[in-house]
């Protein structure tokens, strides 16, 4: 214990070679796995590397990507939301129902998104003011929202054949060769990834999730943070629901059954911790891409759909196990 200032070493330690740092990042590992799978599939199936398949695959994960953004931010703040699947379906159903009742589709969509935001705020209230656990509150909302979907539709899908083309354009149109859905997805991903990394607002989300009490003792209004992340997650569900409605041209009350598990799995594969305090948007998106790629590969290879859940569950377990050991070694 001499009095040397060891901070001088800090500069050299930060200059870890770029490649080494890249290697250590979780995102890199995921990209490698995705590329490997991509390569294998290109040989395994002649249909894989076709424009139509690529497009179908990216459409499949693009909208889920919005949900995974909300979920990741919520997980970082220390929460969880089991209601994403049903709230997404509810947005679709409410907007569709309003439209069939004669409301302008844009207004109907705005109202549905507002309703979802309200649901998020409602859950946030129960978590932060009443003091219940996210898991229980969102479990209740999951069931309630699904019930509301069935109530509004009588359990049958609402056909929205009269949706104006400019509305359907959100879900079905393209800019050049690129689907609008993908554009929306990319905008959200880039915006939220940047904000999460750089803004003071989202840094407070990390502080809160890492140690809520320490955050409170640092003058951060942790309840407000958790309230907002809970609300944001539901708002994104609303937006996703509207995009799905525009894409399918219908509102399905049973849409997104079990979706919450896929979304949570993707976020966790991408590095989010259920204990809060860690996670990244890029990682979570890669998680969603991986799961979606696996699903479509299995379909192309004619693997029974019944196998798909088993395989996806195993991937989740494997990813989390590997990460656990990597973290242990680093710690």
């Amino acid at each position: 214990m001499d009095n040397t200032v060891n901070l001088a070493q800090a500069d050299s330690a930060d200059n870890t070679p770029f490649l080494k740092r890249l290697f250590r990042m979780r995102e890199t590992g995921l990209i490698v796995i995705i590329l490997a799978l991509f390569l294998i599939m290109s040989f395994a199936s002649p249909y894989f590397l076709t424009w139509a398949n690529m497009r179908a695959m990216s459409m499949a994960f693009a909208v889920d990507g919005l949900l995974v953004i909300g979920m990741t931010i919520l997980l970082i703040s220390g929460g969880i939301d089991l209601s994403v699947g049903s709230v997404t379906a509810l947005a679709m159903v409410i907007a569709g129902w309003l439209f069939l009742s004669g409301v302008n589709p844009w207004v109907a969509s705005a109202m549905a998104i507002a309703l979802c935001t309200g649901i998020g705020a409602f859950m946030g209230f129960f978590v932060t003011r009443v003091g219940l656990h996210h898991f229980i509150v969102s479990l209740a909302i999951m069931v309630i929202a699904r019930g509301a979907c069935l109530l509004f539709t009588g359990g049958r899908p609402l056909g929205l054949y009269t949706l104006p083309p400019e509305f359907k354009f959100i879900g079905q149109g393209t800019i050049g060769p690129i689907p609008i859905v993908i554009v929306i997805f990319l905008v959200f991903v880039i915006a939220f990834d940047f904000m999460l990394r750089r803004t003071t607002m989202f840094r407070k989300v990390f502080y809160t999730g890492s140690n809520e009490k320490a955050a409170a003792y640092s003058g951060i209004r942790t309840k407000k943070v958790i309230f907002l992340t809970t609300t944001l997650c539901s708002t994104l569900c609303g937006i996703a629901g509207i995009i799905y409605m525009a894409r399918f041209g219908s509102a399905q009350p049973t849409f997104g059954l079990g979706l919450e598990l896929t979304i949570i799995a993707a976020a966790v594969i991408g590095g989010a911790s259920l204990n809060g305090g860690s996670g990244s948007i890029l990682g979570a998106i890669l998680g969603v891409i991986l799961l979606s790629l696996v699903s479509s590969s299995l379909a192309l290879l004619d693997v029974s759909v019944y196998w798909q859940d088993i395989i996806r569950g195993s991937i989740l377990l494997a990813a989390v196990t590997i990460d656990h050991y990597l973290n242990k070694r680093r710690g």
Partner: peptide, 15 residues
């Protein structure tokens, strides 16, 4: 409740 154990030193100091 004093520090964020799993966060970096720099982001602890600025909290």
């Amino acid at each position: 409740d004093g520090v964020f154990l799993d966060m970096s030193i720099a982001s602890n100091v600025s909290a």
